[in-house]
Design a protein around this nucleic acid. Structure first.
Lengths: 217, 217
DNA sequence: TAGATTGTTAATCGATTAACAATC
DNA sequence: TAGATTGTTAATCGATTAACAATC
């Protein structure tokens, strides 16, 4: 039963991505159907939790005794995660990280389409990355309005981040994916998501520390 | 009072990074001390939650009526997040993303030191990225053992991910930062952290959807 | 049919919030 | 001193888990 509404917690999103990962693996191993118990086992999670989580995404219902069709389940989860809902975005700050993200084809699968880059550096403006133009930051507002873009990827240096974000908001951007270490202030009707790889690294380091501690005993 | 032990939840790590971000901003604005109430306000969080979170990180205690010294607080949080605890790592799979991560100086600040890259592509082996050598995957095991490296960044193509992870485990790696979309199976004493940018994008997309829905009313 | 599994409702647990004594 | 803020303990809320009726 599709549970269509309500603000869904970060924990659910994280697990949903886990499910998609593991299910793709199971499919590659030849599975055709999968039960919530089998999926929970594979990920060391509680079956009830898996069932409840899946209920947020499921359109193609499972069958008692059989479980879920693995293809349908993957599709439902990927739809839930928005893979098949293409999101046009611009990217501002075409430095090393910005170039990597513009050229990184992995994002396409997730439904992110970076249509153009913006920068102030003259040298980079003549270039194209992956067939995408790099335009001067001055043209940002007109381009965003013309193309009706609502999302931006922010990869400027720390010091410019807030000023660029302000310009993005003025241009009509409503969602900013922030890869800079700056704290970005925006009005309430503009979402900011910090891509904080430091957090992942910290979590992993903590786990490593615990593992090494156990080993040394 | 430093609460030194216990497995700390992902939610705490996420907020801790938020605190560090905002505090750096406040410092730049000239603040010298900050209270938990002020920090909570700035981030729209509950003051009790902020106080409890900070208690995990704090070495330099706050003063009643005054609050925390902002420099000391930033330092404590950055220590908690492991910024000042250098972690040597290798990177396997020197494609576009791998090159970007090897050349990305942002990681240094977080305490991650990528000492070398590994790949099977002959063409790339002659290159150096940011002064770091790229070695053939065959040398992985001996290098990891010699340098006593415990952490690896995984940026191979999807299909090679599991086989490379197996090799890493054999070599003695105990923590894998997985940037591939593959589900990686490892023994219990090897930690895996999936860097799932699809999750961030999904969360941001959900927020954008809610914002646009409100606007259209 | 008998049994495994679904989807959902009730019970439990952990994280968040509120309250408060200590203190500068 | 009076009042603001800390650090911590008790109350509340939401997320996780267990239980169970429905069903293929």
């Amino acid at each position: 039963m599709a549970n269509s509404e309500g603000s869904i917690s970060l924990a659910v999103f994280n697990r949903m991505a886990q499910y998609a990962r593991r299910l793709r693996g199971m499919k590659a191993e030849g599975c055709v159907t999968v039960s919530s118990v089998a999926l929970a086992d594979a990920l060391s999670l509680n079956p009830s939790l898996v069932k409840k989580d899946l209920s947020f995404a499921i359109v193609n219902e499972g069958k008692p005794k059989v479980g879920y069709n693995i293809d349908e389940l993957i599709e439902d989860i990927e739809n839930f995660l928005g893979y098949n809902n293409t999101k046009d975005a611009i990217l501002v700050g075409v430095g090393k990280l910005g170039q990597a993200l513009m050229g990184y084809h992995g994002f396409e699968k997730y439904g992110l389409n970076i249509v153009a880059g913006f920068d102030i550096d003259e040298k980079i403006l003549s270039r194209e990355i992956d067939g995408k133009k790099i335009l001067p930051t001055g043209k940002l507002e007109s381009a965003v309005k013309k193309l009706n873009i609502k999302m931006a990827v922010l990869t400027t240096p720390y010091k410019e981040a807030q000023a660029v974000a302000d310009a993005l908001v003025r241009a009509g951007i409503r969602a900013i994916w922030n890869f800079t270490p700056a704290h970005i202030k925006t009005p309430d009707d503009v979402a900011v998501k910090n891509e904080d790889m430091a957090v992942s690294l910290a979590v992993l380091s903590q786990q490593l520390k615990e593992i090494l501690k156990k080993e040394s005993k």
